Amino acid sequence: MEARNQTPLSEFLLLGLTNDPELQPFIFSLFLSIYLVTVLGNLLIILAISSDSHLHIPMYFFLYYLSLNDICLSTTTVPKMLVNIQTQDQSITYTGCLAQICLVLGFCGFESCLLAAMAYDRYVAICHPLRYTVIMSTHVCVLLTLSSFFFSIMDGLLHSLMILRLSFYTEMQIPHFFCELAQIIRLTRSDTLVDNIVIYVAAFIIGGVAVFGIMVSYVHIVSSILRMPSSEGKYKAFSTCGSHLSVVTLFYGTGLGVYISYLITDSSRKAAVASVMYIVIPQMMNPFIYSLRNGDMKKALWKLINRIASLLQCVSSSNFWVSGRKK
């Protein structure tokens, strides 16, 4: 049996997306821009939903937490990457790496569950409109959200604790911009059979059940829409699902693309670049999808922007008046 290295592992090295020093400023600027757009866009969605009483319904209740989750997921990975590029220090502590694995898996799982809850909400709204307020009560929405968050975080904690039993060499280089579970599993020198079984079982429970729920919901939705007599009613019913369908397609489509890239390429760097499409891009695009395809959200955002503009104008006028009095 191979002897274990008894030297405690204190840190990992995140090699990022490229070793080319000339590309580092471009990558820093690109990811900083993506992160700022992600935070600002999702924050506007959160503020618009909070400030507009017309949006205090289950559909936007789930969207509120989806936007909050997107901010948290991006914050878990991108700022550390930016700091590493700026300081030219690729290290991340062992504890920090475990925390990043836990949070990334937790927030990804929570997003998957929220998308399933939103699909169920659309199913009830279209197939059972008269019972919508009864079925999708505040209690049910809170219960769905809390249970989704609990099981997602438990999934992340489980995988993080599984990493603790693995044996590593004293210097570990991760060809990625964050601590991805698959990369950590590849680099260990311990037997990972149990870990791989847990990964697939957890993925089936969290992701598989969510995907199955979304598919079943939309089968009933499409069936109900096709039975509607008027084309106007069909269009109105389908338009309420357009934004959600776009977000689901983007989230699971990019996730499937990352999984395929791991299967067809031996380059860890190429797989890392592909994972950007899953970890970074959907979180940036979600606010645009919901704001551009949703009339109620457009109105709420314009109201919010006008309020902010009026407030800034009042503050500017007050400062000008105060400075004039001082003179």
Rank of each mutant, 00 (worst) to 15 (best):
I34Y: 03
A182W: 05
D195H: 10
I27H: 06
Y278M: 04
F110N: 07
N69H: 05
L256G: 00
L98C: 02
T265L: 14
N286G: 00
A119D: 13
Y35G: 03
V83A: 12
A117D: 09
G96F: 04
L146I: 12
Y169E: 02
R269G: 05
S74T: 08
I174K: 01
Y132S: 11
I205T: 09
I27A: 11
G207R: 10
P79M: 14
G213E: 12
M136E: 15
S190M: 07
L73Q: 06
V258T: 15
P282C: 07
T170E: 08
Y64S: 05
L43A: 14
F110T: 05
V78R: 04
M172Y: 00
M172T: 01
G213Y: 08
N196D: 03
K234I: 02
L17H: 01
L15G: 03
Q183S: 06
S137K: 01
S91P: 01
L13A: 14
V248W: 02
S190F: 06
F28E: 01
E180Y: 08
L105G: 13
E171C: 05
S147W: 13
N319C: 12
H220D: 07
K236I: 10
F110L: 12
R122Y: 05
E171K: 07
G109P: 05
T254V: 07
F61H: 05
L17E: 06
S317W: 03
D266R: 00
A3H: 13
I45C: 07
F168Q: 04
G257F: 05
I163W: 10
E232Q: 13
F151S: 10
D52Y: 03
L13E: 12
R227C: 02
I221Q: 03
L187F: 04
L36E: 12
T76N: 15
